[in-house]
């Protein structure tokens, strides 16, 4: 578990107008780790991911990924460096087939010397990993919710990321589907991918995370062993009390 530090957030802050969405977040993630990130709606989880992914710049602080500062890097460059994310609401390329959806990151990703035939084979392999190979020729509009979330993950792992941020990959899934998704993430992690899981499904977070981080109103209020964190007074208040 305790590899070298893969991602370091140093005092990351983000404001929207007068609203402080993130307030000086410090966070370290080690290579190979399974980190859970929880917090009530609007606590800054997705803002954190968006800043990390480069969708919009942070106002303060910086991210260091794999020893390199990420400031000013366009989102696609971050993808090439091994930082992949899924979206809370699946955002497939609707005019492309499922297979083509996964081919896109392979054609433009870090190994863009890949020949088209190779890219196609790799894409198929990614689809097999998420058990979506049978739907390769279909279009995203024909997929169920769980398959769309699988497609999100397939597209992310096609970048062969060192760090995968799964943003609410379980929302709206049934009990069995959550179990399948968890198994998939465990498998990816066992193959060497560091994973940050942002999730509201508590059962999944508890089972998956080696370490748990809690955001409330843009602040990191807890960071540690999942069971200890979940037992903390503040965390319970943030979730249950008001």
């Amino acid at each position: 578990m305790s590899g070298e530090i893969l991602l370091r957030a140093e005092g990351v802050g983000k404001r929207f107008g007068g609203f402080v969405a993130l307030n000086g977040i410090d966070l370290e993630v080690r290579a190979g780790e399974r980190l859970g990130l929880i917090g009530p709606n609007g606590s800054g989880k997705s803002t954190f991911v968006n800043c990390l992914g480069g969708s919009f710049p942070a106002h303060e602080g910086r991210f260091i990924f794999d020893g390199k500062p990420m400031a000013g890097l366009a989102p696609h460059r971050r993808g090439h460096l091994g930082l992949a994310r899924t979206f809370q609401l699946p955002r497939p390329f609707n005019s492309l087939s499922v297979l083509e959806n996964v081919t896109v990151p392979l054609l433009f990703g870090p190994a863009r010397e890949t020949s088209p035939a190779e890219a196609r084979a790799r894409a198929m392999a990614c689809l097999e990993q998420v058990e979506l190979a049978g739907r390769a020729a279909q279009h995203p509009r024909e997929l169920t919710q769980v398959d769309l979330r699988r497609l999100e993950i397939a597209r992310a792992i096609a970048l062969r990321p060192r760090l995968l941020v799964a943003d609410e990959a379980m929302a709206g899934l049934s009990h069995t589907e959550v179990a399948q998704m968890l198994e998939l993430l465990f498998r990816l992690n066992a193959a060497g991918t560091t994973i940050i899981m942002i999730e509201h499904v508590m059962r999944a977070v508890r089972e998956f995370s080696q370490r748990l981080v809690v955001f409330v109103a843009g602040n990191k209020i807890a960071d540690g062993d999942p069971n200890e964190v979940l037992a903390m007074q503040d965390v319970e208040e943030a979730y249950l009390g008001r």
Partner: peptide
């Protein structure tokens, strides 16, 4: 392929490594 991806969803295309 890259243009089709950015036409369908520019943010998702960026995240998938497309230099939009």
């Amino acid at each position: 392929m890259g243009l089709a991806a950015l036409r369908d969803d520019e943010r998702a295309a960026e995240a998938a490594g497309v230099p939009t």
